[in-house]
Design a protein around this nucleic acid. Sequence first.
DNA 1: AGCCAGGCTACCG
DNA 2: CGGTAGCATGGC
Length: 219
Amino acid sequence: MSKIHQIYKILRKQYSPQGWWPLLELRNTKMIQHTKCGSIQGYHPGDYSFPRNEKQKFEIILGAILTQNTAWPNVEKALQNLNKENLLAPASITRVKIQKLRNAIRPAGYFNQKAAYIKNITKFFMSLKDKIPTRTELLSVKGVGNETADSILLYAYKQPEFVVDTYTKRFLIRNNIPTNKASYLDIKELFESNIPREVPLYQEFHALIVEAEKQQPKS
DNA sequence: AGCCAGGCTACCG
DNA sequence: CGGTAGCATGGC
């Protein structure tokens, strides 16, 4: 077994399943525990059957845009606002005035850019008509880069695409796997070539990396 | 008071 | 190609 895969097993022993991707309707129940870092455990731990419908799938896609360089609690505020205004549906996003959209997502930061990005991805999403997008198609949407594309594919469409983020790079360095010259795709390939190509594994590994790195003291 | 957070685009050399 | 300024809010 590869070193990467071994590290996964250690993380999996050390932490409980993270239950990603977070969904609004699975919040505010008694099962939810807030951690000191502001992250939340126990959305649907060990249950990889989400999203179970189109509404949940669309919420994940919007969350993937909103979380760009942004702490998750701020994303949740934006999502709650959208939910209150009945904007967690493609048709509503298409219809809503850009100014109202900007205002709803304000807590997530970069609201001017992100409002436009959300309009873009929504138009793209509706054009798919239930088809699963390719990675290249997703990347053609302005506002969707490597990480956002992989997050959408892995968590909304359950495609085996490993997600690389800042925590992932930090995680590799902390485990003495140097990544200085490595590009996004290099790192993605490093993971994908060293663990079984399984969606639940990809989902859980990424979530565990984020959780583990959040708990590291900042240096 | 800074610094940072689950990036991306545009533009530079 | 690789490198970086600009984008913005909220929490610590």
